[in-house]
Design a binder for these strands. Structure first.
Lengths: 153, 153
DNA sequence: CATTGTGCGCAAATTATGTGCGTATTTTGT
DNA sequence: ACAAAATACGCACATAATTTGCGCACAATG
């Protein structure tokens, strides 16, 4: 499926205003509400739009500590990888995980209520896991740009 | 404002299903649609819910390269900080930026169409800026866990 | 140059939202 | 412990949004 400029504008708007009605979109796109709705539906069904999320203030949930944890595994077999991937999936405080070029095997983004909780995560969950060799954690002090929409157009 | 268990359940659901109707929420929470809607409204107005976003498949937008860039500034005055913060705001391909404990001053998460574009970002935007002293970039190879909801409950 | 396909707006049926209102439940203060 | 106040609740109904069918216009295709 290919995206025309109207699709791009629609995605760009929905990325910022996820609850925009078909009528709102119609105004932005200079289209009728029915047609705007049909385009959205098409983008949802084709998977370009993966879903919708409410954004919640972490502090209001008591999540006061955001940190990045770099993890090195003991060895680099397929088995170790899947075992660690399983761990990632089961821990909700790990909200994102990446593998990257460079020295560390994994970069984790984690949210915890406080420093003791982060400490427990590191020592009782990550380091306690047999495939984990080393971790290095950095605590977020400030987030001058917070999860902005993807660059479109 | 304090959050009771019903609020938590509501937030948890909206965080995954941002377009849930008041009726959907009513079912999940064992509440009437009107009351579910009122709770949602209250959480929006009080700022607990910061907004709603559509999640878009980056690859479908042609964004094939995700990377993290660590940046060290030339000096650490307030002026350098605000100058760099201004740069962050104007560049859409930088979707997040953090300051953290440890050696590097900033960690940036960036999305680019391809490696040449990332290279241009680094050399023509970041390193070209007078306050930037050093950058170190790591390209994401895989993301085993992708922007999961915040841990609630 | 005809045919096919795609995108469009309109209209109407269906579905969802949101507010007034009266009742129930919980909290607060004495 | 108990009365008063505050908060949360469901129902009903008015308003708003969605989502189809349908016919028309325009562009691509052969």
């Amino acid at each position: 499926m290919s995206l025309d400029p109207t699709d791009i504008a629609l995605l760009s708007h929905l990325q910022k205003h996820g609850t925009a009605t078909a009528q709102d979109l119609a105004e932005v796109l200079h289209l009728s509400p029915s047609q705007a709705g049909r385009r959205r539906q098409r983008l949802e069904e084709s998977g370009v739009i993966e879903g919708y999320r409410a954004r919640i203030d972490p502090a209001r949930l008591g999540l006061h500590v955001q940190a990045f944890v770099q993890v090195q595994l003991a060895s680099h077999g397929v088995e170790q990888g899947t075992a660690f991937a399983r761990l990632l999936r089961t821990r909700p405080e790990i909200t994102s995980a990446w593998t990257m070029t460079g020295e560390a095997d994994y970069l984790l983004r984690v949210w915890c209520p406080d420093l003791p909780a982060l400490n427990r995560l590191i020592h009782e969950v990550l380091l306690a896991h047999p495939v984990v060799a080393r971790v290095h954690s950095q605590i977020v002090m400030d987030q001058p740009k917070a999860d902005a929409p993807l660059p479109i157009g």
